[in-house]
Design a binder for these strands. Structure first.
Length: 302
DNA sequence: ACCGGTCCCTGTTAGC
DNA sequence: TGCTAACAGGGACCGG
């Protein structure tokens, strides 16, 4: 499940491999991959063919390739299983295309950029760019202050140097919900998904259901700092282990799993105290935590 | 404006 | 063995 570190790995790979390339052909193998555009695949093809990639930018889990003229971009969201793979020039070595190949962009040097997505939550769209709300650079890899219109409501992410952490702490505490819900709300702070939320909460020794309104400023700051640390460490691992020839990420089975402390570790001992990690159902998904390091808040206790 | 629930989608796995 | 249900989950959307 690609979250910020995985998407940043993809962005860096795109910056290395497709900038300066021009799109010659666009093949859409599954219409729903282009569903975010009103005109669907027809619009994707017409707005993309003949265009040149001039920047690879990311904010949170959204990534975009700015197009020549800098008024439009190819916007990508990987959903939960999306991959972007650069296929080297030359005949395709595989006898038949990947079963989950959704879109293939043929580039002017004979290479191809493949969008592969098993669970189909990801999508590609060509969108207009607009000025950022704060006038600052849009995100990682951005040469300017322009952001895709559909990403305007997404907050800066935890690794953005322009992130105002104090303001995020205040906004989280102003909410009436649980800490994990706040951390996963991409309009408060972006880039965090279920995996890194659980890892950050464990590192900060906070329970996922802790009410935001009773969380002290220092605790929320600790949560944000801890989650950013986990993501920085994952990024360092992923950045060194992906094949330089390919832009390739599969968060579900990739390189980032190995350093996970609580996510998916039901029954295994907590590295801090040895207590068995437990799994709870929360927000219709799983939450993993240490019952001792992250005690459940009792009503009225705080 | 905020908040929580629902749905979209496919492949794998657990359980009867 | 064969079927069904649960599970993985980001984000748009909707009703309160």
């Amino acid at each position: 499940m690609p979250e910020l570190p995985e998407v940043e790995t993809v962005r860096a790979g795109l910056a290395d491999h497709v900038l300066g390339r021009t799109v010659l052909t666009v093949q859409v193998y599954r219409e729903s991959a282009a569903r975010r555009a009103p005109g669907g695949s027809i619009e994707l093809v017409s707005r993309l063919r003949g265009r040149t990639f001039v920047a690879a930018v990311r904010r949170g889990k959204f990534c975009w390739l700015t197009l020549d003229g800098r008024d439009e971009a190819l916007l990508v969201h990987l959903g939960m299983s999306g991959q972007l793979i650069v296929r080297a020039p030359g005949p395709d070595p595989a006898p038949q295309p990947h079963p989950h190949l959704r879109v293939r962009l043929g580039l002017d040097d004979g290479s191809a950029l493949d969008f592969i997505d098993q669970r189909t939550f990801g999508h590609l769209t060509v969108v207009d760019l607009e000025p950022t709300a704060d006038g600052l650079p849009a995100g990682a890899g951005s040469p300017d202050d322009r952001i895709p219109a559909p990403v305007g409501h997404i907050a800066r992410d935890l690794l953005d140097p322009h992130l105002d952490t104090g303001a995020v702490v205040a906004r989280v505490r102003a909410r009436r919900t649980g800490l994990k819900r706040g951390l996963l709300d991409q309009t408060l702070v972006s880039g965090v998904g279920n995996i890194y939320a659980d890892e950050g909460l464990w590192r900060a020794r906070l329970h996922y259901a802790r009410p935001t309104e009773t969380a002290r400023p220092g605790e929320v700051t600790r949560l944000l700092t801890a989650t950013a640390e986990v993501m920085r460490e994952a990024l360092a691992v992923g950045g060194t282990s992906f094949d330089a020839l390919y832009v390739n990420v599969n968060g579900a089975s990739g390189y980032f799993d190995r350093s996970l402390t609580v996510y998916g570790q039901t029954g295994r001992p907590c590295p801090r105290c040895g207590t068995a990690i437990r799994r709870d159902s929360f927000m219709n998904r799983s939450s993993f935590s240490c019952p001792r390091c992250q005690p459940r808040p009792r009503h009225g206790h705080w």
